[in-house]
Structure formats: structure tokens, C-alpha cells
Amino acid sequence: MLQIRKAPIAAGMLFILIFPWAADRIPGIDHYPDVMIFAGIYCLITIGLSLLMGYAGQISLGHAAFYGIGAYVSGILTTRYGFDPWLCMPIGALAAAAVAVAVGAPSLRLRGHYLAMATLAFGVIVNIFFREQRQWTGGPDGMTGIPGLSLFSFEFDSILSYYYLVWGIVAAAFFFTIALIQSPVGRALRAIHTSEPAAAAMGIPIARYKIFVFAFSAMLASLAGSLYAHYMNFINPGTFDLFFSIKLVIMMALGGMHSIWGALVGAVLVAFLSLEWLHFFEQFEILIYGAILLLVTIFLPEGLAGLPAKLLERARRPS
């Protein structure tokens, strides 16, 4: 877990770079870069979640709320107060972090299912506010007219430009998180995950670390929300509801809870399944989605990220 191999990272980056070029040349999938934009947005959230769930061992069923906070801060500040969209992103992230600290301080004392319920409740409450604070958020119908992003008169208004923008940010978050994992912070987090009493005995301020990771993952989710809002030019509360929080956990489970690669694989896979592939099955869509999820939990409890290691092991030791 500790050592980071360079080859997969280089391969991944190359794939991301040439993907739009390749997709454009294969008939039937030339719209895939558009799906990849949303996949990238989901990746930003799951990178933070993998730190929270995989390394700090804390579950969250409320991250859609932070995603929504970023989106609504961007939406409200740009449409009502004429803020520059770029400025809204750090403001949203700070707001999300502040909320995370306020909620996290009492919540993270909770364990297991109690923590799951507390984060779930938090997410639902925030969503009710998005829905009911009509004068600010536009209510259940949502909010229109959110401006797109631009930089020095360059407009990120094409699918291609937004694709590279989103994935550039994902790459930055990825490398930052890897650096974090390899730093003393990461070591402390792993110690907490292995054994809280032992970590406490070594003098690690557990509560502070947990809150830090919670706030960090909230900031990434908020950033993802801002990117979503400026791409869609529209947001509504339904996008940030409890079922999206559950979907995030499903991404983690499919990809693998315990590695940052799992977070990326899970987010991309679920994005393509739910936004693109599954609708071919029409009325069987829900059924097949459930079946895939069940099959992965049964046969790959470590998630898809555990698959290469498993295959390698099998290749080395032919039984």
C-alpha cells in the first residue's frame, strides 16, 4: 500500500490523455468523453472518501451534502452576487470544510452503524434545506443560469476543454493525496485504522486526525460540486440526495475501499454503468445493476482494485 508504483500511474495518465482522441475514432462511443467528465467529478469525491473510509476507517453516508454545498455555493454566489466562478471554488471548499469540522467533531466519536446513521441524517437534513430554502436555491426545480468557466478569455465550454480541466484537477488531487498518504499524516491514519487504542497509546491525536480527513474529503467533494455546477449550468437538490451518497459508497465497494486506485476505478465504473451502459437493458436496468453489485461483493470482496493482485498471485502459483 505504501510504495507507489510509477508504471500504473504513467499508464493511467496516458490513457486519460489520449482517451478523447481514441473515443472520437470509434463509432458509437464518441460521446464517452462527456461521460468521463462526470466520472472525473465522481473521482474527486471518491479520492477523498478513500482517505476517509479506507485509511481512517470512517464511514460516511452523507458526502452528497458536501458535493451539494460546493455546487450551491458556486451557484448562489455567481448568479446572485456576480462572483467570479474560480473564486467560488475555494469559498465553497472552505464552507464545506467548516461544516465538516462542525459536524465531524461530535459525530466522529460515534462508531460503526451509529456513525453511518449520523452522517446519513446530516446529508438528508442538508438536502431538505436545499429543497426548502427556495429563495436561495430555487427549490426542488433547481437553479438555472449558472455561468460556465473561463480563463483569460478562453471558455471551457466544449466537452473536450472541460474534460481536460476536470481530469487535470483529478490528477492534482490524486498526487496530493498520495503525498499525504506517504507523509507522517498518512502513517498516523493507518495506525488509527489498524488499532485505535494502539495509536492513542503512541500519542497520535486521533480525534484531530479524523476531523482533518473528514474536512479534507469534504473539500474535495465541494470542489467536485462546483465543477458539476459550472459544467451543467444547472443544479437541483435531487442530484445531491441520500441516494447519491449511497452511490458513492457503492463506487468505493466496487472499486475497493482500501486503495486510491479502487476509488478511481469504482467511480469511473459506476459513472459508465449508471450513466451509459445500463440503460440498454431498459426495464431490467435496476435488476442488472443490483446483480453486478452482488456479484462483485461475492467474488471480489476487495473490489476491482484487488483483481490485478489476485491474478498475479494466481499466475505465480498455478494450483
Binding site: E285, I286, Y289, G290, L293, T297, I298, P301
Partner: peptide
Amino acid sequence: TLIIATVAVSIIIKG
């Protein structure tokens, strides 16, 4: 994993 499995089953039953 077990909780995710119950989510999967709930999706299947609903489908």
C-alpha cells in the same frame, strides 16, 4: 461488504 451486499439485494428485489 455485507452491508453493500444487502444494498445489492435490495436493488434486485426492487427491480
